[in-house]
Amino acid sequence: MQLTRISNGEVTVDVAALGAEMQAIQTRDGRHWLWHGDASYWTGRSPILFPMVGRAPNDTISIDGERYQMSQHGFARRSNFSLVVEESDRCVYRLEDSEASRSLYPFAFALDVEHRLVGRGVVVTAEVHNRDTRPMPFGIGFHPAFAWPLPGAEGPHMVTLDNGGEPALRRLSGGLVEPEDLPSPFSRGQLVLEPDQFRADAMLFPEGAGAGLAYGPASGPKVHFTWENLPNFALWTKPGAGFICLEPWHGTAAEVGGSDDLAARPYAEVLGPGAVARYAFRVELAG
């Protein structure tokens, strides 16, 4: 696997060409903060979701009346990106349309993914470029998996929303979003994580989670996680695995009984010809 390593003396990050996926976050004290990718649970570590988040009905989407096969979370995470910028503390990988991609998603596009180190943190930015002559629908999201428990941490771990909100919960059925709002598992912005919360798959919060949170125990190591231009949020793990995914998205899976039209999916983006859209998250490590 082709890897690019960036470092600023405080933090070292490895990024793979496959999927432009971050593989490791290590602080100078030797601690690893990202999930290590045990294949017996899940091989992902921090995949980029594009041009679709979640699942489509029968793994099929429609665009302008034509149908295309599209597996869960799109094809970017399984595509080889090209390294276009490599600096000591920053790298940029690019995915461009190809004959293979156009058979699944009939648009000319570029997806640039930048990893940049700032102090004891990393900023991940995705830019979507519509190089086509027509509006381009898509969904995009981030799926980073952090160690649970965090390195050197003890006791229950919590997710605490910066906005103190209690966003309504949605659940998935067969990978599709159930339309009913359920009571929020948050109380005054705080959720104590337990594996049993994920027996029914991910917890999705289409609205109201804000744009930032703290993850970790009451005292000890913590992750402050913020995001930009990503209105939807989800939490996911596989019970028994040592990770929790903090997932900000723009676009969700299709709803149960909903359309397979990509542009009609909840919170889908439609980018005009020649336009560029930017999305980002930031991880700050403390303790």
Rank of each mutant, 00 (worst) to 15 (best):
L3F: 06
N8W: 11
V11Q: 02
V13Y: 04
D14L: 09
V15H: 07
Q23C: 07
R28H: 14
R28E: 08
D29N: 12
D29G: 12
W33Y: 11
H36Y: 04
W42N: 03
W42A: 04
T43K: 12
F50W: 13
P51V: 00
M52Q: 15
M52A: 14
V53L: 10
R55F: 05
D59H: 14
I61N: 09
S62T: 15
I63G: 06
I63L: 13
D64S: 15
E66N: 13
Y68F: 15
M70N: 05
S71K: 09
H73Y: 03
R77I: 00
R78Y: 03
R78I: 00
S79V: 04
L83Q: 11
E87I: 06
S88F: 04
L95Y: 00
D97N: 14
A100G: 03
S103N: 09
F107Q: 05
A108W: 01
L111F: 02
V113S: 06
R120H: 15
G121T: 06
V128N: 05
R134L: 08
P135W: 00
M136N: 08
P137R: 08
P144W: 10
P149T: 02
G155N: 09
G155V: 05
H157R: 05
T160C: 02
T160M: 01
P167E: 03
R171E: 10
R171I: 10
R171Y: 10
G174Q: 08
V177R: 11
P183V: 00
F186P: 06
F186T: 00
L191R: 03
F198L: 13
A200C: 09
A202I: 05
L204A: 14
G212R: 10
G216K: 08
A218C: 02
H224K: 08
F225C: 05
E228I: 00
N229L: 01
N229Q: 14
P231C: 06
F233I: 13
A234C: 11
W236E: 06
P239N: 05
A241D: 08
P248V: 07
G251H: 13
A253C: 15
G258Y: 14
D260K: 00
L262I: 11
Y267C: 04
P273R: 02
A275S: 13
A277G: 09
R278E: 09
R278P: 09
A280K: 07
F281C: 10
F281T: 01
L285C: 10
G287L: 13
